[in-house]
Design a protein around this nucleic acid. Structure first.
Lengths: 253, 253
DNA sequence: CCTTTTGGTTTAATATAATAAACCAAGTTT
DNA sequence: AAACTTGGTTTATTATATTAAACCAAAAGG
C-alpha cells in the first residue's frame, strides 16, 4: 500500500484520464465498470468533480472535461514564460529549414512537450503540448539531461536497462552518458530513430542567465530530409536556442 | 454539509487554484496555513498529487503545476473541434476590423473564453482562454443565452437580481429576456460597458447542423472605435460566425 | 556553542469516507 | 400489461482516511 496516499485523488485522476481520452462517451455506469469503482463511490466522485468544474455532464448523461482544466491548463503553460518568445522566434526557423520544431522541458526522466511550430511537411509525429516521452530516447531529452552528473543520472535511471522505444534506442546507461558528454561538447543532441522509427531529430538546449538548462528545442524530419539538410538544421536549431537563451537571460525570474 | 461529497477533491482543487495563481511560490507550510489544512493532511495530499503529476516540487520546496494539467488542459481545448477553424478564419476578420476577437462557449450561466485572436490595438481586456465570466453581462453570453426559453432562463437565474459588473450591467431578468429576443431577431448581441467599463462588444452565435447554438465570437473595442466601426464590426462578426457555422455544419460530431 | 524555532515527516487514535445493499424511475422484454 | 433489467440515487454499516502529537533535521537567534 502506498504511504501518505489519498486514494480519492488517484481515482479522480483515473476518471479524468478516461474522460480526456473519450469525452462525451462515458456515463456513470460505464466509468464505474471500466475503472472497477463502486457505482455509489463513482456517484459521489462525479458529483464533487462536477461541482468543482472539473467535468461537465452532457445532455445524454455522459461526461466531458470541464472548464477548470481550461483554466488550469492555461495556467500550466503560462508557467513557462519562454513560450511567448518561442512562438515569436520559431516561425522564422521553421520557414528557413522547412521542418517542424518542438519545445520541451524536463520533468523527472521524461520530457514534456510544451509547444510546437509546425511546418507544411506532409508527415509529422503526433507530439502535442502536454504529452510526455522518455527523455533518454529523444534528442530533446539528451539536450536536457546534460545538466546532470553521472551519479545523478544513475539515480534517475536505477534500472539495469533503459526503455527501448525502437530497435535503435539506447538501453545502456553508459552509452547514454557518453552521448551526453558528446552533446555537451558539441552543443546539440541527435536521435536517429530512437524515439520513433523513421524519424530523425536534432536538438539544442536553452539556458538562463545562470547558465542553467531550462528547456530545449528540436527539429524533427525523415531520413531523406535528414541527409539533405542536417547541417542547415544544426545551425538553425543552435541559433534558435541561442536566441531563446538570450531572451531567457533577459527575463527576471 | 454537502451531500455525496469527497472533501479530498475539494481540498485538491483549492491547492491547485492557489498554486496556479502563484506557481513556485508556496511550500507545504505556506499552503497549509493559507488553506487551513493540517500539515500532515497537506503532506499526504501533496505527495499524492506530486506522484500523479498534478504538481511538481521545485528545488526550493515550492510547488508548481505539473504536466498532467498540460495534458488535461490540451485535452479540454481539443474537445472543442471548432477551435482549429477559429484559428484559421479569425485572423482575416481581425485584420479587416483591427480589433480583438474572442471565442467562448456557455457553461451554466457563465461563458468560458476558449480562444482569442488579438489585434495590435494598444489596450485589450484580460480575458484569457480558460477564464469564465457571467454570461448575462457580455455580448458573447447574450448570443449564447438566446437558445433558452423564458422558463429556462428563470431556472438559470433564480435570484431576484442579476449580478452587476459595472453600473451599466442589466440586473432585471425581464430586461435580459427582451434583449435576448432582440438579439435573436437581429442575429447579433451587444454589450456597451456591461462587462467592463470603457469597453464595447458585439457578438454573433455559431450554430451546428441541427441549428443548435454551440459557441459565439465577438469583437471588443473602446468607445471611439465603437462609434467609428460599429457597422463594419457587425458585418464582419456575423460573417465570421456564419463561416464557422458552416464549418460546424460540415463536422461529424 | 547552545537553545529555540521552523518545516517536513511519521504514527496511533479518532473521525469520517466508502460501499454493500436497498430503493427508485424509466426503459426493455416477454 | 406484467415482469425484468438498467442506470442512477440513497442510506446504514464497515473500512479507511485524517489529524493531533511526537519526532527529526536544519536553520536561526542569543
Amino acid at each position: 500500500m502506498k504511504r501518505y496516499w489519498v486514494p480519492a485523488l488517484e481515482r479522480a485522476d483515473q476518471i479524468l484520464t478516461l474522460i480526456a481520452y473519450e469525452p462525451a462517451r462515458n456515463r456513470l455506469i460505464d466509468l464505474s465498470k471500466q475503472l472497477g469503482i463502486n457505482k455509489s463511490s463513482m456517484f459521489t466522485l462525479l458529483n464533487t468533480m462536477e461541482s468543482l468544474g472539473w467535468i461537465v455532464k452532457e445532455k445524454d448523461d455522459t461526461y466531458s472535461l470541464g472548464s477548470s482544466f481550461g483554466a488550469l491548463g492555461a495556467a500550466y503553460f503560462r508557467q513557462f514564460n519562454l513560450l511567448k518568445f518561442f512562438h515569436v522566434e520559431a516561425p522564422a526557423s521553421t520557414h528557413r529549414v522547412g521542418e517542424t520544431i518542438q519545445f520541451a522541458v524536463l520533468e523527472g526522466r521524461d520530457i514534456i512537450y510544451l509547444a510546437k511550430e509546425e511546418s507544411p511537411a506532409p508527415i509529422r509525429v503526433a507530439a502535442d503540448p502536454g504529452m510526455r516521452f522518455p527523455a533518454h530516447a529523444t534528442s530533446l531529452g539528451k539536450a536536457l539531461l546534460t545538466q546532470y552528473s553521472y551519479e545523478q543520472l544513475k539515480q534517475l535511471f536505477p534500472e539495469p536497462l533503459l526503455e527501448a522505444k525502437t530497435p535503435h534506442t539506447i538501453t545502456q546507461l553508459d552509452q547514454l552518458w557518453l552521448q551526453l558528454q558528446q552533446t555537451y561538447e558539441q552543443g546539440y543532441a541527435i536521435d536517429e530513430q530512437e524515439a520513433v522509427s523513421g524519424f530523425f531529430c536534432i536538438a539544442a538546449p536553452i539556458l538562463n542567465h545562470r547558465n542553467e538548462i531550462i528547456a530545449a528545442v528540436s527539429f524533427t524530419m525523415m531520413e531523406a530530409a535528414w541527409l539533405d539538410k542536417f547541417e542547415l538544421a544544426k545551425e538553425e536549431i543552435v541559433s534558435l536556442a541561442r536566441r531563446l537563451s538570450q531572451r531567457a537571460g533577459a527575463m527576471i525570474l
